[in-house]
């Protein structure tokens, strides 16, 4: 059996030829095992005849913001759904905190410490703000087989969560459908950031936000990073990516076509890779 990507990455001596970004300046290559929080190794995902992901390999370092960019339909959301347990990869492997993981459901990924803000936010329109904040993380008291909701505690903590993340709402009792897109997005982020996770995945977290709200979310992302959380950020906004991230991966039609340390690339180079003018392969 040929050595897997994981063994290659983690056990091989680090020579420049072994980096998956040949030609890149030194320092942009494979990180040491202690640095890597998440490794995606040759993950493919097929939907029937559609190949949404083809042998995707990338990683996210501890304490860093890792960005993924790519055109619509490049496979970014599919990739993060494979990481967050919503899809299971057709082939390939995932390593989290140095161990291989198989998430059979989003619940398992959440338990392992991966929280996700999905592109569609995954909020229930007919439930209230506090119910959404605690969805599947309800505070309960056990009574035999029944898990009885501790609504008082959840409401109190919901207020605290929203204050902490400076989310401003008319009421925590408002139903999600009564709120604006930006408010929903802010709630989804507060929800994902509240559970002391190790990796926070955000799929276009500022897509629906105005200038002021975007800035607030960016500040929040940086604050979480400074607290030691690793963040996987999908964004179409290059300025944002260059401003926030330490590492960028570029995807095109289901493949990773390049990876760069952010301080060693430019907006123009990213555009060239996304559109296929330039590629590492």
């Amino acid at each position: 059996m040929s050595p897997t990507e994981f063994e290659r990455v983690f056990s091989a001596p680090q020579t420049p030829e072994r980096t998956p970004t040949p030609g890149a300046p030194p320092g942009s290559g494979v990180p040491g095992p202690a640095e890597v929080l998440l490794l995606v190794e040759r993950v493919s995902k097929h939907f029937g005849a559609i190949v949404a992901l083809h042998e995707v390999t990338l990683w996210a370092r501890r304490g860093e913001i890792t960005a993924i960019v790519g055109d619509n339909g490049a496979g970014k959301s599919t990739l993060i759904k494979c990481i967050s347990g919503l899809h299971s990869p057709s082939s390939g492997r995932l390593f989290f905190e140095g161990k291989e993981v198989h998430f059979a459901s989003p619940q398992e990924a959440r338990q392992a410490g991966i929280e996700t803000v999905y592109q569609n936010l995954a909020m229930i329109e007919d439930l209230t703000v506090w119910q959404n904040l605690f969805l599947n993380r309800e505070r309960v008291k056990r009574l035999g087989p029944l898990a009885i909701l501790d609504r008082r505690t959840m409401r109190r903590e919901a207020l605290r969560m929203l204050r902490q993340f400076e989310v401003h709402l008319p009421s925590i009792h408002a139903r999600l459908r009564q709120l604006s897109g930006g408010q929903r997005q802010a709630i989804a982020i507060a929800r994902a950031a509240s559970w002391g996770s190790r990796l926070l995945i955000m799929d276009e977290p500022t897509a629906a936000l105005g200038v002021r709200e975007t800035r607030r979310v960016e500040e929040l992302i940086l604050r979480l990073r400074d607290q030691g959380l690793a963040i996987l950020l999908i964004s179409h906004n290059f300025e944002q990516v260059l401003r926030l991230s330490q590492q960028v991966w570029v995807m095109r039609s289901g493949r990773v076509v390049g990876g760069r340390r952010t301080n060693e690339t430019t907006s123009d180079e990213l555009v060239a890779m996304i559109t296929g003018v330039k590629s590492d392969e």
């Binding site: 989003p106 990924a109 995954a122 969805l135 599947n136």
Partner: peptide, 15 residues
């Protein structure tokens, strides 16, 4: 209620 409201979102939250 979450399942009936939005099954996909409920699944994404691990329900």
């Amino acid at each position: 209620l979450a399942t009936g409201g939005d099954a996909e979102a409920a699944r994404a939250m691990g329900i």
